[in-house]
């Protein structure tokens, strides 16, 4: 597959990049590692007039701790570097596992964290070549009036499957967004929208510059169920982060990925553990309760209902892992 023509800019500073991104609105796209964007261009799913390369901007680089202990990860950092970074691996093993679950090592050598956070939703019908798509009616995402996956769906239900995201949300991460108009900061959990097409709140001309992980001594883990260990998108993923003890847990965030148009914070299983404690009975009850949190989930490779059963197993695995994990050592 060949790329369509586009103009290319490699600005030297963030301000210059933001000016480029704001001039022509939607027809300009920010280029990070390119491992997803360039595929979408080849598939003619996106048609930007120009690409603005932001990967090597100095303002988007670096992993550091500020005075309060908040971890700042530059959005242009490569996933391979982050998956092995001591400021991530030691305090946040769940995040390191999640980053390592993205794509293949080849992909992670090129891909950026900011790019993974902005990964468009995917679906078996739409993420195909233009010819392939042309053999059937257009769907919501391709300007049609139907969803081929869930026939009754009133909008696009394509799946959000950026593996780093559930882990970051489970840690209470925030994102810094910059545009030529200014800067704003929001919870990563509030960055996503329940829509397969407009799946985040990024405004035209806006760019993620950094991810902030608040200081906390947490136990954390991440599991991914996919057809193959390498390269495949998940059937379902689950991240968990816990503070407090097994007997008296203080907080627990369980965040599922690849089950809908946005990451899903599981409410009931977490409430059960916080009430019952992280013990055998609590884990079984939490696993039983996960069904109620999941809406309409489908996956063309598996029978309907598979993801709900799968998620039950993932809840068990994550909770058992959190239960036996030791808190990372304090500095």
């Amino acid at each position: 597959m060949q790329l369509p023509p586009f103009a290319y800019h490699r600005p030297a500073s963030l301000d210059e990049a933001l000016a480029r991104l704001s001039t022509a609105g939607d027809s300009v796209a920010a280029l990070g590692g390119g491992t997803d964007l360039l595929i979408n261009l080849k598939l003619r799913l996106e048609r930007p007039r120009a690409l603005v390369s932001v990967r090597d901007l100095p303002e988007l680089a670096g992993v550091s701790l500020d005075a309060s202990g908040t971890l700042r990860i530059g959005a242009g950092e490569r996933l391979t570097d982050l998956a092995a970074h001591p400021l991530i691996v030691v305090p946040y093993p769940g995040l390191a596992q999640a980053i390592r679950a993205v794509g293949s090592q080849h992909v992670r050598n090129m891909a950026t964290l900011g790019g993974n956070l902005c990964l468009p939703t995917r679906c078996w019908y739409t993420n195909q070549s233009e010819n392939w798509r042309g053999s059937q009616l257009p769907c919501w995402k391709t300007d049609g009036q139907v969803c081929h996956v869930i026939k009754t769906a009133p909008n696009c239900r394509a799946i959000h499957s950026a593996d780093s995201v559930p882990a970051l949300i489970s840690l209470g991460a925030r994102v810094l967004l910059r545009s030529s108009q200014g800067e704003r900061e929001l919870l990563l959990a509030d960055f996503y929208r329940d829509d397969g097409i407009e799946n985040n709140v990024l405004a035209p001309g806006e760019l993620i510059t950094a991810v902030l992980v608040p200081p906390a001594r947490v136990r954390s883990t991440f599991v991914k169920a996919a057809a193959r260990t390498g390269l495949d998108y998940g059937y379902a993923t689950l991240a968990g982060a816990l503070t407090g003890s097994n007997r008296v847990p203080k907080s627990l965030l369980l965040v599922a990925g690849s089950v809908g148009t946005m990451p899903l914070v599981l409410q009931k299983p977490a409430q059960i553990i916080l009430a019952e404690g992280l013990n055998e009975a609590g884990i079984e009850a939490a696993a039983d309760a996960v069904r109620d949190d999941l809406g309409e989930v489908t996956n063309l490779f598996t029978p309907p209902g598979y993801k709900k059963r799968l998620m039950r197993g993932l809840v068990r695995r994550v909770l058992h892992e959190l239960r036996r994990q030791k808190l990372p050592a304090a500095d």
Binding site: Y8, R10, L31, G33, G34, T35, L38, I39, S53, T80, Q105, H106, V107, N109, M110
Partner: peptide, 16 residues
Amino acid sequence: GDDGRAVLSCLALAIE
């Protein structure tokens, strides 16, 4: 690539 790591040349722009 120049850092010694494996790069997918099909997803890299020559201009970069």
